[in-house]
């Protein structure tokens, strides 16, 4: 670690602000690993939740039978029950049903670890909200575009794929940004099942060094930064995909 930061941090400590993460190598390392875990959760769950959202919205748009009903039930369930309870349900309840393997020295090792369960729970959670986002984005595309495609001979599926989806995507960005910010914030819930993400390690650090106030503020600042980055990335994607003269965006 840079000596400059270390000296700065020690000076801060002398004046009452104790940021052990800056001058203590152990704290610094575990803080960074917590941050990396949080980022990994954000990135992985963003990918999966977008896939789930797209697939679910496609089902709702193209089919009317049991598949659509299943998707609607899934969305209703996830949106109206607590994420924390869902996570506990996966980790404790479903996890208790999973077969247990053995590690190198013969100790029992669960098949699916807590990080994986957190990914599953968070992806399903954000995925449900994304289904709603993409559904209304697709719904905002005016009928006349689809009709024009059909009149040109496109099948319903082809019209959907080549005309409605590209346009509907552009309407979804604002709501998608909201969902991904929520996802970023929700990664903290993984704390409850012992995933060593940012909140968890910060808690460990302030329990050891009693610098609760400083660590809280650092955390707040970092989450602000993370959500800011998410919003910025979505904004860039939106700008890259924007069509001149189209839509109210």
């Amino acid at each position: 670690m840079l000596e400059v930061f270390r000296q700065f941090a020690l000076d801060l400590k002398a004046s009452g602000i104790n940021l052990t993460i800056l001058y203590d190598a152990f704290d610094f390392e575990r803080f960074v690993s917590g941050l990396m875990t949080t980022c990994a959760l954000i990135v992985i769950c963003t990918l999966f939740s977008i896939l789930i959202g797209g697939a679910g919205a496609a089902v709702l748009a193209l089919s009317r039978g049991p598949a659509a009903m299943l998707v609607r039930a899934y969305v209703a369930l996830i949106r109206n029950t607590p994420l924390l309870v869902q996570m506990y349900f996966f980790y404790f309840a479903v996890g208790s049903l999973m077969p247990v393997g053995q590690n190198a020295i013969g100790l029992p090792v669960p098949m699916i670890g807590n990080f994986t369960w957190a990914v599953i729970a968070l992806s399903l959670y954000a995925g449900a909200f994304n289904i709603e986002t993409f559904r209304s984005g697709l719904g905002a595309v005016h009928n006349s575009y689809e009709e024009a495609a059909l009149a040109l001979g496109y099948s319903r599926f082809k019209a959907f794929r080549y005309v409605v989806v590209p346009l509907g995507l552009r309407f979804s960005f604002a709501s998608l940004a909201n969902n991904l910010v929520d996802l970023t914030k929700s990664t903290t819930v993984a704390y409850a099942i012992g995933v060593a993400e940012l909140l968890y390690v910060s808690n460990q650090i302030w329990s050891d060094s009693l610098n609760t106030f400083e660590m809280m503020n650092v955390m707040l600042a970092i989450y602000l930064l993370l959500t800011g980055i998410v919003v910025w990335i979505i904004g860039r994607v939106q700008a890259a995909m924007s069509l001149p003269g189209f839509g109210a965006n």
Binding site: V181, T184, T188, Y191, L199, M216, L220, L224
Partner: peptide
């Protein structure tokens, strides 16, 4: 708005 609810709770 951008702070996690759990962090605000801890706070």
């Amino acid at each position: 708005r951008n702070a996690p609810w759990l962090v605000l709770l801890f706070y």
